[in-house]
């Protein structure tokens, strides 16, 4: 009977470990990549808008210099505020499950307004329109990744699906650990400290896994040199990944410490029982 209780306790401890692990990973994901506020904060922290503007102006100036439209003042059009507005709008659409689209009318209008002040012939204005198309396409590519829209449009669907799934299971994720913890304690109600030992094992295993994931990623992936699309995006993704790894590490350490304490408490209980037998 004691052996049966032991086996059942180990099985429940294993299941508890899995549930806690899932809860931790879901919790961290929900608070980071699935949170629009978090991502927008990271955009500000990594000076994303300024970096995009710097890159954009270099590319746009290249086209403008060879176009002969040197009088165009693009710094007035492609401001950090304009970029912030368009990028945040892009993320807003993504996190609300909408199709990603970019409204170029505002930029086209500003370019046309500047063109009207130049004394150009009709033929030159027509050529300028073609150049404006290139300028707007460059802006769309650099700022809203317009050329990748076919992939980007999968992101809102994925985010909506994940959020819906998490909402459905979130109550379960919070309640299940409590249920399984109580089950272990009930099974081992005559030896509560032994029950704590099993809970400690679950937490310790979680801590080992989380710290192990951290070490694996850091040793096998060159995170600091990630290059995705451009420097601004890469720095953003590096910052998010580094932050998530740090969170995993902290939670892992906490689980390890609490788990270790639980395990030691369970170990001390055996000592008391042994004393009682021989007294």
């Amino acid at each position: 009977m004691k052996i049966v209780i032991k086996i059942i306790s180990y099985i429940i401890a294993f299941i508890l470990m899995l549930i806690i692990l899932a809860g931790i990973l879901i919790g961290i994901t929900t608070k980071t990549v699935l949170s629009q506020t978090y991502v927008i904060n990271k955009l500000e922290e990594t000076n994303f808008y300024e970096k995009v503007q710097k890159n954009l102006l270099i590319k746009e100036k290249d086209y403008i210099e060879q176009s002969g439209l040197e009088e165009l003042n693009i710094e007035k059009i492609f401001t950090v505020e304009q970029i912030r507005k368009d990028v945040n709008n892009l993320f807003n659409q993504m996190y609300r499950g909408k199709i990603v689209s970019f409204n170029e009318n505002n930029i086209k209008q500003q370019l046309d307004n500047q063109l009207d002040k130049m004394n150009l012939t009709t033929a030159e204005k027509k050529e300028a329109d073609q150049i404006f198309e290139t300028i707007i396409n460059t802006y769309s590519t650099e700022v809203t990744y317009g050329t990748y829209s076919q992939y980007l449009n999968n992101v809102p669907k994925a985010i909506t699906k994940i959020n819906n799934t998490i909402s459905e299971f979130s109550i379960v994720m919070y309640i299940l650990p409590i249920i399984f913890t109580v089950i272990i304690l009930i099974i081992n109600r005559k030896q509560i400290k032994i029950g704590l030992k099993y809970i400690g094992i679950s937490l310790l295993a979680n801590g080992i896994l989380l710290i192990g994931i951290n070490i694996y990623i850091k040793t096998n992936m060159d995170i600091s040199n990630l290059l995705i699309l451009n420097k601004a995006s890469s720095d953003l993704i590096i910052a998010i990944v580094t932050d998530i790894l740090a969170k995993l590490n902290i939670v892992g350490i906490i689980c390890t410490i609490i788990g270790f304490v639980g395990v030691v408490i369970g170990a001390t209980y055996k000592k008391e029982k042994h004393k009682q037998k021989h007294s």
């Binding site: 470990m17 400690g200 295993a205 080992i208 170990a267």
Partner: peptide, 15 residues
């Protein structure tokens, strides 16, 4: 206590 703790740690590692 050490023995019991080590056994528990091994079980956690096994998990």
């Amino acid at each position: 206590i050490s023995k019991a703790t080590i056994i528990s740690i091994i079980v956690a590692l096994l998990f």
